[in-house]
Design a protein around this nucleic acid. Structure first.
Lengths: 227, 227
DNA sequence: CCGCATCCTCGGCGATACTG
DNA sequence: CAGTATCGCCGAGGATGCGG
């Protein structure tokens, strides 16, 4: 069983040989928020056949993007976690999500949603310049899920485990989060209407607004110049 | 004919709905260096069925990532060029290539190569910090192909058309380029052995070495933190 | 029940021939 | 030259089975 390849001596093609096939990047997205069990992945990837998931996990382990580790608390149970090479894909995922951010309209009825996918939304809203000089941790509690991100030195990181003391904690319902992403509700309005409970100091909240508050529109981009 | 989708309300999944299918990102890679004709794309994408190429081009035009434009000089001939939305994918392609850079070994015999693919290699070698404060244009003439890149403000851009006066021009054979990428030959050694002809001032050449000279190894990366 | 493996069907993909 | 048509194959998706 030889793996399909583009057979091109090109860094981009090589990357796509490893992570370019269907579902692969979404599996890695799931692991950004920490190690996950097989059943968690099945639950977060509706439409994906379980056989295909098992195959992809094996491929990703062979490619050394992730590791399969026995869960100490439950015998016979395993978790999948990002290995070094998988973690290094972060900037690429971040930029892809940043681009896809512009394609996000309102949620359709046939679309699934998981609170931690809001991270890809935050990647899009993140303003690196506004984050300069700050070093803060933000926590989101959305139903059963807790997400933590750290803003530090123009970078935004996802924390895999609970920070000892986040600078800011938001508690909100999943539906509220969906409405904010879909622009039916602004973050400020949700705060005003008590749909978000906040723990943290006012200046930190102002930092958060500065960093994630503005929706980047279609601004000029010059990575390719027309001469 | 309804398009396949992940049906997830997630920025990354939305991005992959548009550019996640086979060959799509490689088509866009081809257009980074400027508008291309259908035959150019066929030539640069061996293994891809021409029917599939035509389908992808239509999809990408509908998604407004590229535009099909009649070539003024030849009646009935069209070129495909990146549209605004396609250009905005640049940072994502750059980060993906940067990641794939580590997977580049020596060229295999069954691998194809085109000189402009070296851009994805340069993405990987690019040191943003070393580029700070500079604004220079480098030109590579490799056989029939000419590639131009601009380094400006911690960013590396690809120029689609000839810069009026590049600060530095390298002329080399395709085989030399392949050997440099495969680490069988260092850039310096190639210069010493007259395998690369250079036009430009010495300080500019030193800048170039500073920006692209060091091969980033497996350095620590903390975009995901373990707690 | 969880973590896969097997089976089967269908559609996307790859190669080539064909047409304006 | 720029696509379109055709066909065979394999990867993807869904259901089910099975061992720990």
């Amino acid at each position: 069983m030889i793996k399909r390849s583009y057979h091109q001596y090109c860094a981009l093609a090589k990357a796509l040989d490893v992570v370019g096939e269907r579902w692969t990047l979404l599996i890695l997205r799931e692991l950004i928020t920490g190690p996950k069990r097989y059943k968690d992945l099945v639950g977060a990837l509706p439409g994906m056949g379980t056989n295909l998931l098992a195959t992809r996990l094996k491929e990703l382990e062979e490619s050394r993007l992730l590791e399969r580790r026995p869960l100490s608390t439950h015998a016979g149970v395993f978790v999948y976690q990002l290995a070094y090479r998988g973690k290094k894909l972060g900037p690429a995922l971040q930029e892809l999500a940043r681009w896809g951010f512009a394609l996000l309209g309102q949620a359709e009825h046939d679309e699934t949603f998981r609170p931690h996918w809001a991270i890809s939304f935050l990647y899009g809203a993140f303003d690196a310049k506004a984050a300069e000089g700050l070093n803060e941790t933000y926590q989101f509690i959305v139903g059963p899920e807790t997400i933590q991100i750290q803003v530090h030195g123009k970078k935004m990181n996802v924390l895999q485990e609970a920070a000892p003391k986040p600078d800011l904690t938001f508690t909100l319902e999943e539906q509220t989060l969906i409405e904010i992403i879909g622009r039916q509700l602004t973050f400020s309005a949700a705060l005003d209407r008590k749909k978000i409970q906040t723990i943290g100091d006012t200046p930190v909240l102002q930092h958060f607004f500065k960093i994630f508050g503005t929706r980047p529109g279609e601004e000029k981009n010059s990575w390719v110049t027309l001469g």
